[in-house]
């Protein structure tokens, strides 16, 4: 089969399946499927955003869950104040709470992007092992920071009174919320496809391939890396905003380092440096988790060696298997 159709046929099947999922769930009478798949789509979004820095930018960030968590907390905290009718901040400027998704979700992306800017500007001063450890450490720092926020539930987390309001769409309906997630993911994939083929995308891939050469060509590498890091952080924050709405609950656990590890696994499992690989990776990983937890509470005893096996014996991930490409280039 030519590569093009090997690539597009399975993806088209997947797209149709995802579009029809609420209907299928209805037929099976299993409403849980809709909320399960909402969660899968949100994690897919976060995995895609990580792949932007990991697969395309060549930066092994082990702290991506931090931005996911910051996004989630942004929504939760704004909603908390929105319901209470109290301002989140009075000084130096007054920031009111809000339960409007058109406010909270962009705010989630923005806050995560700001954190990514701060963390990225420090950690991108280093590369390799240093970068991995530093991103991990900063993520853990945020984890402890949010634990110390007693007002917002501290260790126990914070519940939302309800999902945010979106004018024209009732998000408390699981089906509607599912389509919101699907829409956000689709738009992100479309924008991601434009991004990686744009001048900017070519530059970050060039940096991944050969940083020294990029410098010698005249690219201020640090700035491009940082921009990529911030964009990815922002998208992860948006994902966090969605997960807060999906579960109507946030806790510091969202930014625990094992979350970062799991998102990394999704990307590698699906195929890094590809647009749709992380989507497949997230679906497979979370479905596996779902099935394994049904079999044994000690599912991690199976997942751990499975991961080691995936790393040692596969190249290119699931997406590579489907398309027959070892590792996608550019």
């Amino acid at each position: 089969m030519p590569v093009a159709s090997r690539k597009w046929v399975p993806l088209a099947v997947l797209a149709v399946f995802l579009a029809a999922l609420p209907g299928i769930a209805e037929m099976l009478g299993d409403r849980y499927l809709v909320s399960l798949f909402s969660r899968l789509l949100i994690y897919a979004l976060v995995a895609v955003s990580l792949d932007l820095i990991l697969g395309y930018g060549g930066m092994v960030s082990f702290g991506h869950a931090a931005f996911f968590g910051v996004g989630a907390y942004t929504v939760a905290i704004l909603s908390f104040h929105g319901f209470e009718g109290t301002p989140f901040l009075e000084w130096p400027l007054r920031i009111e709470g809000s339960t409007n998704a058109l406010v909270t979700l962009p705010a989630a992306a923005l806050c995560a992007a700001i954190f990514a800017l701060i963390i990225g500007s420090l950690s991108l001063r280093t590369t390799g092992m240093h970068f991995i450890m530093i991103t991990l450490a900063f993520a853990q720092m945020l984890y402890f920071l949010y634990i110390s926020l007693e007002r917002y539930g501290g260790d126990d987390g914070l519940s939302l009174y309800s999902r945010n309001d979106l004018p024209g769409l009732d998000l408390s309906d699981d089906g509607n919320f599912y389509y919101l997630c699907l829409g956000v993911l689709s738009i992100s994939l479309f924008l991601g496809e434009r991004l990686i083929n744009s001048r900017f995308g070519q530059v970050i891939q060039g940096i991944r391939e050969n940083e020294r050469r990029m410098l010698a060509l005249g690219f201020p590498v640090y700035r491009y890396r940082l921009a990529c890091f911030v964009i990815a952080g922002g998208i992860a924050g948006l994902g966090g905003g969605l997960i807060a709405n999906q579960t109507e609950f946030v806790s510091p656990g969202l930014m625990h380092w094992t979350q970062s590890g799991e998102i990394l696994v999704m990307v590698l499992l699906g195929g890094m440096g590809t647009l749709f690989g992380p989507l497949l990776g997230a679906l497979v990983f979370l479905l596996m988790e779902e099935i394994l937890t049904g079999i044994t509470e000690h599912w991690m005893v199976i997942m751990g060696p499975f991961l080691i096996g995936v790393v040692l014996y596969t190249r290119g991930g699931i997406y590579g298997l489907i398309t027959g490409q070892e590792k996608a280039g550019g």
């Binding site: 991995i132 991690m300 751990g304 790393v311």
Partner: peptide
Amino acid sequence: RDHLDQVLATFGLILLFNE
């Protein structure tokens, strides 16, 4: 292997040991 593979395989080890 590159650092990413090392990170993921040893992450797998952690899951295994903890569980």
